[in-house]
């Protein structure tokens, strides 16, 4: 049977579309020309210049502080939420709970940004790293809950019952049986939360205050007002980090499957 070649060609075109801008950007980061329209030879000067920009490193520090905090907070909230949704899924409380967890996933970021800004203004909170942290925990919780919930679907609850039949109490079962078995799902959720937090621009932009510039906020102002070659160099470095992380997580899941 001859299969149509349309899907294959579409997929190849889509991949070209995905990677063309990224490849151009990476090549341009080594281009001596300031505007990147012409090729003026290889250079590393943009990378050298990048390392002298103190505010970028400060922004990176802020980003990492928020990401670590938001990951920790959302992993706790998301995991308990997923457990509740799975274990008591049919009750009326969980139906409300599920809508609460699900809605932030689809609401556009700008709406979450403005509503949190107005909330913080209304309660008189000072905008800064802490308000960004609160905002990040809010949207990361839903993602963690969904990832852990997906893992729970394959979870065999008879193990819990077996542990209880063997005399383990409620507390012991939770800490010694349930959590270790859920660890891969929790780790996957945490990794997602960390990445989302590091990457978030829109919500952070709305709830940031003076002195709480994160890396995406810094990149945004560089895009609007700064010099393109520096962003090229910074982007290339971030892409290297992303590719490494994706490759690592891929290796981890593969080994588990083997």
């Amino acid at each position: 049977m001859n299969r149509s070649r349309v899907p294959l060609y579409t997929t190849l075109a889509v991949l070209l579309f995905f990677y063309l801008p990224i490849v151009v950007l990476v090549i341009n980061s080594f281009n001596a020309s300031r505007f990147g329209g012409t090729w003026d030879g290889w250079t590393l000067k943009w990378y050298a210049k990048l390392f002298t920009q103190r505010d970028i490193w400060l922004a990176l520090k802020n980003t990492l502080i928020i990401a670590v905090g938001a990951t920790a907070g959302s992993v706790v909230l998301g995991t308990t939420a997923a457990f509740a949704l799975h274990r008591y899924g049919k009750s009326r409380l969980q139906r409300v709970h599920y809508s609460l967890i699900y809605t932030p996933l689809v609401v556009p970021e700008i709406l979450m940004g403005i509503s949190l800004l107005l909330f913080f203004v209304a309660i008189g909170a000072e905008l800064g790293l802490f308000t960004i942290f609160l905002a990040h925990v809010t949207f990361c919780t839903s993602y963690v809950a969904m990832v852990v919930l997906a893992r729970l679907q394959d979870f065999d609850f008879s193990i819990i019952e077996a542990a209880q039949d063997l005399g383990a109490g409620w507390w012991t079962t939770t800490w010694k049986v349930l959590l270790p078995l859920l660890a891969p799902g929790i780790a996957a959720g945490g990794l997602l939360a960390f990445t989302l937090s590091i990457d978030d621009f829109v919500i952070s932009f709305f709830v940031a205050g003076p002195g709480s510039t994160t890396l995406p906020i810094r990149i945004y102002s560089m895009i609007k007002f700064g010099s393109p070659p520096l962003i090229n160099a910074l982007s290339t470095l971030l892409l290297v980090v992303t590719f490494t992380l994706v490759a690592l997580s891929q290796r981890l899941t593969e080994r588990r499957r083997a």
């Binding site: 063309l20 151009v24 982007s235 971030l238 992303t242 994706v246």
Partner: peptide, 17 residues
């Protein structure tokens, strides 16, 4: 991979292109 890379960077790449 594009799903995990920074959203701002991908938009900026098009601005350059």
């Amino acid at each position: 991979v594009p799903f995990w890379t920074s959203f701002l960077i991908r938009i900026f790449a098009w601005k350059v292109l």
